[in-house]
Simulated scan of single mutants.
Amino acid sequence: MSALDHVAISTADYPTSLAFYEKALAPLGIKTHMKFEGEEGNVAGLGSEQPFLWIGDGGKLTGGRVHLAFSAPNRAAVDAFYAAAIAAGGKDNGPPGLRPHYHATYYAAFVYDPDGHNIEAVCHAPE
C-alpha cells in the first residue's frame, strides 16, 4: 500500500509563514508539533496527530506554486479556516461556498499564503 506521508514547502519568510499556517489551520485541528533548526535553516512540522506539513527556510518558489487542500469536518470549519487565514494575512482566492463543478456537495474556500501558494479547506459532506 502506498500513501502520501507528508509534504514540505519552502518559505521566503519563515516566521511570517509559520504564523500564517498556525492561525489559518487551527480551525481544522492542525497545530505545530515540532520546530528545529536543520541543515538548511528553520523547520516546523504541523499536523493533527503528527506532522504531515513541513515548512521551512529556503526561499520563495520561482516558476510555480503549490496547491494544498486540507479536509474539514464540516462547512463551519471551512468558514472558520477562511476567516482565520484572511485575518492571518492570507489573500482571497475564493470565499467559502459550493463548487458544484467538482461535485454537488464540494464546499471549499481558497486563500493564497504569504508565498502565493493556493491553500484550500474542503468539506465533501452535505450540510
Results as ranks from 00 to 15, higher is better:
Tyr107Gly: 09
Phe70Gly: 02
Thr62Val: 07
Ala80Asp: 04
Ala72Cys: 01
His33Tyr: 13
Ala19Phe: 01
Pro100Asn: 07
Val78Thr: 05
Val111Asp: 07
Thr16Tyr: 01
Asp57Met: 01
His103Lys: 08
His101Tyr: 15
Gly45Lys: 00
Pro100Ser: 05
Val111Lys: 03
Tyr112Asp: 10
Val66Lys: 09
Tyr112Arg: 08
Pro114Ile: 00
Lys31Val: 15
Gly47Ser: 12
Ala109Val: 00
Leu61Thr: 10
Ala44Val: 00
Ala26Glu: 11
Lys35Glu: 15
Ala87Val: 07
Val43Leu: 14
Ala72Asn: 02
Pro73Ser: 00
Val111Pro: 02
Tyr21Cys: 01
Tyr106Gln: 08
Lys31Thr: 15
Ala121Asn: 13
Leu25Met: 10
His117Arg: 15
Ala84Val: 05
Glu22Trp: 04
Gly41Tyr: 11
Leu68Cys: 14
Pro114Val: 01
Glu37Met: 02
Gly29Phe: 07
Ala19Lys: 01
Asn118Ala: 13
Leu46Pro: 01
Pro126Cys: 08
Phe36His: 14
Tyr82Gln: 10
Val111Ala: 12
Glu40Lys: 08
Thr16His: 05
Pro126Ala: 15
Gly97Thr: 06
Pro126Trp: 09
Leu18Met: 05
Ala24His: 05
Ala69Gln: 09
Pro51His: 07
His124Glu: 08
Gly47Arg: 06
Phe81Ala: 09
Arg99Glu: 06
Asn42Ser: 04
Glu39Lys: 14
Glu120Pro: 00
Leu25His: 08
Pro96Val: 07
Gly94Thr: 08
Ala121Cys: 15
Trp54Asp: 06
Phe81Leu: 09
Gly58Trp: 06
Ala87Glu: 15
Trp54Gly: 14
His124Cys: 07
Glu39Met: 15
Gly97Lys: 02
Glu40His: 12
Pro51Trp: 00
Glu49Ala: 13
Gly94Met: 03
Lys35Tyr: 03
Met34Lys: 04
Thr32Phe: 00
Ala72Lys: 04
Lys23Pro: 02
Ala76Val: 10
Ile86Cys: 00
Trp54Pro: 01
Gly45Phe: 00
Thr32Pro: 02
Leu98Asn: 14
Pro95Ser: 13
Glu39Leu: 13
Pro96Glu: 05
Thr16Val: 14
His67Gly: 10
Ile119Ser: 10
Gly90Cys: 14
Ala44Tyr: 01
Pro27Asp: 12
Gly97Ala: 02
Gly38Ser: 06
Asp57Lys: 06
Gly116Lys: 11
Met34Asn: 11
Ile30Ser: 09
Ala125Leu: 14
Met34His: 06
Ala88His: 14
Gln50Tyr: 12
Pro100Arg: 06
Ala19Met: 07
Val43Glu: 03
Lys31Met: 13
Gly56Gln: 00
Gln50Ser: 13
Glu127Lys: 07
Glu37Thr: 12
Lys23Cys: 02
Lys35Leu: 07
Val78His: 01
Leu98Trp: 01
Asn74Phe: 04
Met34Trp: 09
Arg65Phe: 14
Ala84Asn: 10
Gly97Asn: 05
Leu61His: 01
His101Phe: 13
Trp54Gln: 14
Pro126Val: 04
Ser71Asn: 12
Pro100His: 03
Ala84Ser: 15
Glu49Asp: 14
